[in-house]
Write a protein that binds this DNA or RNA. Structure first.
Lengths: 239, 239
DNA sequence: TCCTGCAACTCTTGTAGAACACATCATACA
DNA sequence: TGTATGATGTGTTCTACAAGAGTTGCAGGA
């Protein structure tokens, strides 16, 4: 534990240390961290201080704690990741689970808006994924995803992509998505949308612009989803 | 502290006790709660246990803690409430602040969907508020709000309603809004919308269906907002 | 006498750590 | 094969002290 020029509480230093370790994949997903006692000994602080840091990480769903068993790196399982970041559901708040279809992937140089959104350096390459998301057997979302090739090398050679991308990011690339910033607006269906979705050109659809953020704070994915909300709704709880 | 049949940790019992007290307006907004020591003495637990309960309430933004000063019931000030529950902003995530216009209020019997949404008893009366929300001098949202008259007696005689309704709920009626469930979808502008918003009939708009939930868990407000998202977006962070 | 400035005190929440209870699992033993 | 037990985890509770903020009271000068 190094004492930084500006004071930070011990438990905060422990927290930062653990975030760094997890960001560097020191432990695999679903693998157990060292016990509180072990970490306390290693970092030369008390068990209570380690616990305070672990509790904070558990609130953020970065880790999971199980009494009597241990503390584990939270796993982005299929259901869990979808439940967290896929917000479309039946109007009565029955959760919808999507599948993928008509996937196409290509590698190219990043364009200006992508450089800005993902804070990339000029000339960097990206992978563009275009796919249709099905809910209940019907096309519901038309998705365009931009990924920096630097962070996901050869992801365009690992087709087909899994249904839950964030689980793959975590397991294959050690990239932990912890939050996502979304901007929503209503838009009209264009010819491009109508080829994928059961919507007439000119009909309203929900346009979602998302940037996903990893545990180290880096902006890792830009995703635009165009959703048919005639049968599903975007559900969110503000608190 | 009574021991319930199913075991609950002490700090959870303290938490529940405090929630109940705040729900019953034992302390006014921005008023200080008794100190940790005082609460600990009153409830016959240690200061650390009280602190754990208070920390949880602070995370939920029900209370605010200030070192050296005390613990205060969080106040739904104008800016704070809007920042929390009004999600429209400029695309670059510059926050937008709305004002109200063209407000009309009437009292009537609750209709079937309102009974369901707000879990009302048949025959209960509601107050229906219709108003236009302006952002940057332009109409941006057309809002319809349903409130149970039982919880907000004579609210229809206190016109004009303030800009931040939840601050009024808290100060005038002791109702603390802590979360809101929203369902969003894209819809077309209808004649009714076009009278209020600078949109042509048939243009896409964002339809938001919100139920606001008070600290005691009761469903207190049903609000439908129809938003012009040609200049603003609905911004939300998933975590 | 009145005002000013500072030190000391008191009350608050924040941080750190210890002690023990409870959960889980592996293993020894009847 | 079933049960007891010990080892090792996290969960809960409590204590001690640090740090922030405000109040009080006193010394000293105008």
């Amino acid at each position: 534990m190094d004492a930084s020029p500006q004071y930070r509480p011990l438990y905060r230093q422990v927290y930062d240390f653990l975030v760094k370790q997890i960001a560097e994949s020191a432990w695999r997903p679903s693998e157990a961290l060292p016990s509180e006692q072990a970490l306390a000994g290693q970092l030369n602080v008390s068990q209570g201080t380690v616990r305070k840091a672990l509790d904070a990480l558990a609130v953020e769903k970065v880790i999971e704690r199980r009494q009597g068993k241990g503390t584990f790196v939270a796993e982005h399982t299929q259901e869990r990741a979808l439940f967290r970041f896929f917000r479309l559901s039946e109007p009565g708040s029955e959760r919808a689970t999507p599948t993928s279809a008509d996937e196409s992937v290509r590698r190219r140089a990043a364009r200006a808006p992508e450089l800005r959104r993902l804070r990339l350096d000029a000339g960097e390459q990206v992978v563009e994924v275009v796919r249709t998301r099905m809910v209940g057997g019907r096309p519901a979302v038309f998705e365009r995803i931009i990924l920096p090739l630097r962070q996901f090398p050869d992801i365009d050679r690992r087709l087909p992509l899994p249904n839950a991308l964030y689980a793959m990011f975590q397991q294959e690339y050690g990239v932990n998505i912890v939050s996502a910033e979304e901007e929503l607006r209503a838009d009209v269906t264009r010819a491009q949308d109508a080829r994928r979705l059961p919507l007439a050109v000119g009909a309203p659809l929900l346009h979602i612009d998302r940037v996903a953020i990893a545990i180290d704070g880096s902006r890792v994915e830009w995703r635009i989803s165009r959703c048919d909300t005639s049968r599903l709704v975007y559900a969110v709880t503000l608190s």
